[in-house]
Amino acid sequence: MIHPHTKLVFINEQIGYGVFATRFIPKGTITYVKDALEIIISDERFKEHTPEVKEIIEKYSYRDQNGDNIISWDFAKYVNHCCNCNTISTGYGFEMAIRDIYPDEQITDEYGIFNLKEEMPLSCGETCCRKKIAPDDFSKYYQDWDAKIKESIFFLFDVNQPLLSLVDDQTKGELAILKKYPEEYKSVSALMHQVPA
């Protein structure tokens, strides 16, 4: 589920839609949680679909650490990539604001964490744009992503969290340990899909 203080906005024909903040969302706020309503499509189920349906699944889903395609039931699936994103997935399974997000600012994410199957060209417009995202981005960049998350995650305990009730009990327990023992931080690499040998 996407953060409640967001809205879906049509940007243009090339980009399509994007998600924008309707209120101030402070650094450390959980902005997305995989909840019980998300659509989960296993690799086996994916193979059963027509090419047209597969294309839609690949466009609007991300792959979790189990290799399943997850499609958000709400407009979270329209959050766009940016190489200088303002939210990012964490090793705890939710996405979080890594800096303050202001009203009418676009919510952006790091697609490299989404366990891509193939390379995807991109142009996010940032000077740091990588020009593509690829399946090996996880191994290349996870330490950089961890550094960004570590700068923000401890704000999580001090800001309003409208989505916290949707975080599962195991993750809440992990967060309680993190608050007490910061050295127990769980790397974003926990989300990396491990292909069986």
Rank of each mutant, 00 (worst) to 15 (best):
I113N: 11
D137I: 12
K59G: 11
K140D: 13
V79L: 08
F114P: 00
F114Q: 02
S61H: 01
C124G: 03
W73A: 13
T50W: 01
K140A: 00
E105F: 04
R45C: 04
D104G: 00
N84A: 12
I56C: 06
I70K: 03
Y141W: 12
S89L: 03
K140L: 11
D109R: 00
I98W: 06
C129N: 09
E38D: 15
K117T: 04
A97E: 00
D64Q: 10
I88G: 13
M120H: 12
E118I: 01
T87A: 07
G91L: 15
I57W: 03
E110H: 06
S42E: 08
H81N: 13
I88H: 12
L122F: 07
H81G: 13
C85S: 14
N86P: 10
S139L: 12
K59R: 12
R45N: 09
I70A: 04
P51M: 07
C85Q: 14
S89R: 01
I113A: 15
Y78M: 14
K59N: 13
W73R: 10
R130I: 13
I133C: 07
T50A: 03
S89Q: 05
G91M: 15
D64V: 08
K34C: 10
D74A: 11
G67V: 07
L116V: 03
V79I: 14
A36C: 00
E110S: 05
S89W: 06
D35F: 05
H49P: 01
S139V: 05
T127R: 15
E58L: 14
K117W: 02
K131G: 11
